[in-house]
Design a protein around this nucleic acid. Sequence first.
DNA 1: ACGGCGGCTATACACGTGAGTAGTATCCGA
DNA 2: TCGGATACTACTCACGTGTATAGCCGCCGT
Lengths: 221, 221
Amino acid sequence: MRIADASTGGAPSEFTTRARLRDAAIQCFAAEGFGASVRTIAARAGVSAGLIRHHFGSKDALRAECDAAVLERHRSLKTEGLVAPANAMAQLAESDEHGATLVYILRSVQDGSAAGTAFIERLIDDAVVYSEEAVAAGILRPSADPVGRARLLVTNSVGGLIVLLSMHPEISLTDFKTVLAKTFEQIALPSLELYTYGVFADSSYLDQYLLYIGDPPGSRV
Amino acid sequence: MRIADASTGGAPSEFTTRARLRDAAIQCFAAEGFGASVRTIAARAGVSAGLIRHHFGSKDALRAECDAAVLERHRSLKTEGLVAPANAMAQLAESDEHGATLVYILRSVQDGSAAGTAFIERLIDDAVVYSEEAVAAGILRPSADPVGRARLLVTNSVGGLIVLLSMHPEISLTDFKTVLAKTFEQIALPSLELYTYGVFADSSYLDQYLLYIGDPPGSRV
DNA sequence: ACGGCGGCTATACACGTGAGTAGTATCCGA
DNA sequence: TCGGATACTACTCACGTGTATAGCCGCCGT
């Protein structure tokens, strides 16, 4: 037990074999989803399947470590100031390693795992903070339901990305970056339009709804 | 072969055993995802696993028939005029049977299957048509990229729904309707706000991008 | 030089899956 | 009444999976 820790002395995520296996797993999970077998991961890392069990004990434990690594990678990216409020995702697609990270995160969300939920909630929390700042700075319009808006923006963006990527099952291990770039290029203009002007020509739908929730008819519970 | 067809004489989707099994499969797939085993489906229908193979030949064939049935169900709903442009999804959540249909569709999209892709593309095509009409009627703002906007709106809405539902794994076979209603209630106000006013306080981001694609710097390939 | 130990593999096991086969019961027409 | 087809079940098989164990090889401290 405690193999890598004991040898390197504290930092478990170095260039140890354990980290190599973990990164191979991240790439496989990103490429094929979490159905990727332990043997596939082992093959990609050029080792035998038993070694993974030797290091991690179980597939679930391996995945938990992948989750932690990816979450941590995203957190460090954020503290580096790379992740801007609006185009948070686009930044991640730049490098190929980060591309795999992004796809892994999307797969986690898609899969409904705890890591995916955690990630979404973190994004929402971030968005709430960014939104407050941006509203104060006059960049964003104020909202009647700021956290609801943040939630909507995040879930829609991430979900839209998931749908778009689901429609391209040919994300062979190599071109995460390419397919992500294409996708972003596809949605950039409509997104900016939507975020700038909305889609409705006037505010009648919103006004109706505001009236409706102000004095709701008894038909609903 | 051709059991139901030969007996009922033309319409394969009646109250035949075959249709019963298919509907049980749709509910199981909606509840558990497509990993639901043939035995589970059989148990739900109150029959043995072998019978499913007897009727459909394979699990894939069964799923194909479920896909077709769901797609057809949605198409008939559309021709009934029930599906309005804006709140297309909300309608489906009303009845419980349609709730299962909706969730099945979402699962198909999430899963990246051909049926899911087909469904998304159909929704986009519909949205393009509706948008044209709505723009002509002065309800929607015109767009510089109408089909891009339709694509964005559809993928974001459906994807957002998928994400939101993924975060509630407790969709026990019974309360499709409840969880869908809660979800819609949660996003209604922010959605209307977004679609009415957007989120940006001014058009500077959009203007920048329009300039950018008008004369792109050479840094990109 | 050598002895122990950690990295690593080969092999096997239990389990759940989809698929296949054989056989039984039930109904319908001649 | 009977014969055949059809709905249905019980049982079996092959396969891929995650998990588990036993053992080999090379490095490193003494």
